[in-house]
């Protein structure tokens, strides 16, 4: 069982995520992707040969290359999604601040 450390790590991360949700430090919808990630890690750690099988299906002769490709693309996609989200939040914040400023100006005018 040389995959035991990965199983332990995945389980610890899942427990950490759930306890964060219980303490209301993390929202349920945000946790979804991370729990999926951990489950994938658990599956791979428990059945390492599944990677070989998928690699041979895709015609990749060196299975670890598949793992690395998947990981790198997953990280790439996640960072892109986060960037998009930050941009969106920034725009919303600007809008909200502008509206607030206008409201304040109206209030000052009434005095």
């Amino acid at each position: 069982m040389n995959n035991l450390p990965f199983i332990v790590i995945a389980i610890i991360i899942i427990i950490y995520i759930i306890s964060s949700i219980r303490r209301e430090k993390l929202s349920v919808s945000v946790s979804f992707a991370w729990v999926l990630f951990c489950i994938a890690m658990l599956v791979l750690a428990c059945f390492p040969y599944s990677l070989d099988w998928v690699a041979s299906l895709l015609g990749i002769s060196y299975p670890p290359a598949l793992l690395l490709t998947i990981c790198v693309s997953a990280l790439f996609i996640m960072s892109f999604i986060q960037d998009k989200k930050i941009d969106e939040l920034e725009q919303k914040l600007t809008n909200t601040t502008e509206e607030l400023n206008i409201l304040r100006a109206k209030k000052n005018g009434k005095k």
């Binding site: 759930i18 949700i21 219980r22 349920v28 919808s29 946790s31 979804f32 729990v35």
Partner: peptide
Amino acid sequence: IKQLYSCVIIFIKFVG
């Protein structure tokens, strides 16, 4: 899928 997941998580969150 999302709602199923959130039902399970909410159950775990409040079960104790």
